[in-house]
């Protein structure tokens, strides 16, 4: 169904994105002393991107409401393909069905990246987790997302875990109560 949807083909060179993101991270590492703070900030940036990117996704794919979390996972998978040009696998479902992972064989964000020894705890790709969280929050899904495996740290794949927390109820806009 959504397979046949023709996506907007406007693309940019991945190295431009890659290096732009890398320079931003490097600048943050300079500005903030603690790599953990940088990771947090990267997640925040991802969140900011996610809450706006979801609009783009909905309008480009014309996708309908998700029926269950499996459906959601499939749609995020489409989003990976649409936005980053990679096709991750959805795996490692928890028995309760509220947690799953995306496995990426290659991560376009880290193509030209090497982490120095002193930044091994930096979660370089946290921006992706943030984006997933931000985007889902805009469709009333509260999730957590974090990096389990990271190719930058010598792992075979990059694994991003997503855990469903709760459905958000429609909240009244501030000041309207």
């Amino acid at each position: 169904m959504s397979r046949s949807t023709r996506f907007d083909t406007k693309k940019v060179n991945s190295e431009l994105v890659n290096l732009t993101y890398g320079t931003l991270v490097a600048q943050m590492v300079k500005d903030l002393d603690n790599p953990d703070d940088v990771s947090k900030q990267l997640d925040r940036i991802g969140y900011n991107i996610g809450i706006r990117l979801i609009e783009d996704f909905l309008s480009k794919t014309g996708t309908a409401r998700c029926l269950d979390l499996k459906d959601t996972a499939d749609k995020i998978q489409t989003a990976f393909r649409l936005y980053l040009g990679v096709q991750p696998n959805v795996v490692n479902w928890s028995p309760a069905g509220d947690e799953f992972s995306f496995i990426l064989d290659s991560n376009p964000l880290t193509e030209l990246v090497e982490l120095p020894e002193n930044l091994k705890q930096l979660k370089y790709s946290n921006v992706i987790c943030g984006a997933i969280r931000g985007a889902l929050e805009m469709v009333q899904l509260d999730v957590q997302s974090w990096i389990v495996q990271d190719q930058l740290k010598g792992d075979q794949n990059t694994e991003i875990r997503v855990k469903f927390i709760r459905r958000l109820e429609d909240a009244m806009p501030a000041g309207e109560d």
Binding site: D8, K10, K11, V12, N13, S14, E15, L16, V17, T20, I49, L53, D56, L82, Y83, L84, G85, P108, E111
Partner: peptide, 8 residues
């Protein structure tokens, strides 16, 4: 490699 313009 290519990445979506919206992302960039």
């Amino acid at each position: 490699g290519e990445i979506s313009l919206s992302c960039f």
